[in-house]
Design a protein around this nucleic acid. Structure first.
Lengths: 242, 242
DNA sequence: GCCGAAACTATACGGTGTGAAGTTTTGATA
DNA sequence: TATCAAAACTTCACACCGTATAGTTTCGGC
C-alpha cells in the first residue's frame, strides 16, 4: 500500500492541491468571519471569493457546520497556542508575573480576534456539540491545563487559603484529569477547582468586554481587567508586585 | 387631537387588538426561541404559528432584527426583575447571605432561561448595538445597580481590602453614574469597579456553564459556582457564614 | 492514448428576510 | 345607513441561503 515507487511527486500533487484548496476555503471563511461575523461565513460567499461554485466546497467539507466546526478547532487551537506560548515565555519569573502573563495573553488574543472568541465561546452553530475526541475539546483542555499550571505555580502560597474546599477527583471529567494529573502530580482537587474558577473570572470580564456589555458602563475595561488580575493574584496568596 | 368624545371604546379596541397581536408575536417568538434557539425565531415560523402571513408581521415590527431586539429588551428586563426581587426578598439579612441570594438568583434565572441568557449576552443579531436610551441598556444598568448594591452592602467590610484601587469617576459611563450615585451616595469609585468585577466573576462561570464549556471539565458546576461565591464573599471581607 | 476517479458545474428545491402592490376589514363620518 | 380612508393583511416577487442530484470537465496513472 502507499505510493507507487517513484510517483511520490504526482500523487503528492493531488494531495497538495487538495490541501491548498482546503486551506484557502478556511482562510476565506476566516476573513469573512472577521469582517462580517460568524453569520457571514456562507458557502456561496466563499465560493464567490474563490471563483468556484458553492457546491464545490462539498468536496472538502460535508456541510457548512462541518466547515465552521473545523474553524472552531483551528481557532481554539490558536488561542491555546497563544496562551501556552506566553506561559513558556514567562518561565522562570515569579508566580504573580506569570499569572499576569497568561491572563494578558488570553485577553490580548481575544481583543485581537474578537470574532474568533465569539466563534469559540458563543455558539455559531446552534445546538452544536463538539465531538468528544476532537481538537476543540482538546484545546479547551489545553487551556484548562494552562490554568492548572497557574494554580500549580501559585499553590505553595494558595494552599492554606483553600483548605476548606470540598472538591474530590470525582468532581472532574476523567479526560481532563488524564491530562492534568500526569502534568501536575502533586496537585489536589482543590487546585483544579481553583483553576476552573480562575477561568471563570478571566472569561467573565473578557467576554463581557468582547460582546460589548462593558461599553455602556466603563471606558476603561483595561483598568478593570488589571485590577481584577491584581485581586486574583492576591487571592492566590501571592504578593501583588508584578 | 386625541379621541373623539364618547368613542374611547372603539378607538381603544383597535389599540387593544394591536397590542394583543404584538404580544402574541413576541410570545410565539419566545416559544420558538425556547425550543430551537435564537435562530428558530423566523418571521415565517411565527406567522405560520399564528395563521398569518409573514409579511403581516411587518405591520408590527419594522424588521426581524427589530423584533429580536424587542425580545432582548423584554428578556433583559425579566432578568433584572428576577435579581432585584431576590435582593428585595433578602432585605434585612446579613451581607454574605444577600450576596448569595443575588448571585443564586442570577444563575438560577440563567439556568431556567438558557436561551434568554444567550439572547442577552450572546449576539443573536450580529453587529447589533442596542440604542443607547432603550430598555436593554437600562436593564443592564439595573443589573449593575444591583451589583453596586452588593458592593455597597459589603463596603464597610470590603473598603480596607480595596484601598489601592485607582479608579476615579471618569472611569465610568455618566449614564451609569447617574443611576448609581443617587442610589448609593457614599459609594466611592473603587466600589463601582468592584461591582463590575463581581459581575465579571458571576458572568464568567455562568456563561461558561450555559454555553456548555464546563460540561467537558466538571460534572459539578453547582459546586464550582458556590465555591466561587464563598471565595467572593471572603474577598469582600465578609465572614463566610451564610 | 485511454480510463477511471476526482474535482467541479448545472439545476433544482425548500427555506429565509424583505420590498411593492393589491385586497380586505373596519371604525369614523356625512 | 352609505361612504370613505386608513389600517390590517395577502399576494407576488426577488435575492440570498444550504444542500441534494445529476452531469461535465480535468487529469494522474497505466
Amino acid at each position: 500500500m502507499g505510493s507507487t515507487a517513484g510517483n511520490k511527486g504526482t500523487r503528492g500533487r493531488r494531495e497538495r492541491l487538495r490541501a491548498e484548496t482546503t486551506a484557502e476555503i478556511k482562510e476565506v471563511a476566516l476573513a469573512l468571519m472577521a469582517s462580517g461575523g460568524p453569520d457571514a461565513i456562507t458557502l456561496r460567499a466563499i465560493a464567490r471569493e474563490m471563483g468556484m461554485t458553492a457546491n464545490a466546497i462539498y468536496g472538502y467539507f460535508a456541510t457548512r457546520d462541518d466547515l465552521v466546526s473545523t474553524l472552531i478547532d483551528d481557532v481554539y487551537t490558536a488561542l491555546a497556542d497563544a496562551v501556552d506560548a506566553a506561559w513558556q515565555a514567562s518561565s522562570g519569573k515569579d508566580a504573580a508575573t506569570r499569572v499576569h502573563a497568561w491572563a494578558d495573553a488570553f485577553r490580548d488574543w481575544a481583543l485581537a480576534h474578537p470574532e474568533g472568541f465569539r466563534l469559540i465561546y458563543g455558539d455559531p452553530v446552534p445546538g452544536y456539540q463538539a465531538p468528544p475526541g476532537g481538537p476543540a475539546p482538546d484545546a479547551a483542555r489545553r487551556v484548562c491545563t494552562g490554568l492548572a499550571g497557574l494554580a500549580a505555580e501559585a499553590w505553595p502560597w494558595a494552599e492554606p487559603l483553600y483548605a476548606d474546599s470540598d472538591f474530590t477527583w470525582s468532581d472532574f471529567d476523567p479526560a481532563l484529569l488524564d491530562k492534568l494529573r500526569p502534568a501536575f502530580p502533586g496537585l489536589p482537587p482543590a487546585a483544579v477547582a481553583l483553576a476552573l474558577r480562575i477561568w471563570g473570572r478571566l472569561h467573565g470580564l473578557v467576554s463581557l468586554e468582547i460582546y460589548g456589555h462593558l461599553r455602556g458602563q466603563t471606558p476603561s475595561p483595561d483598568k478593570l481587567f488589571h485590577e481584577e488580575l491584581a485581586q486574583l493574584v492576591r487571592a492566590l496568596g501571592l504578593s501583588p508586585r508584578a
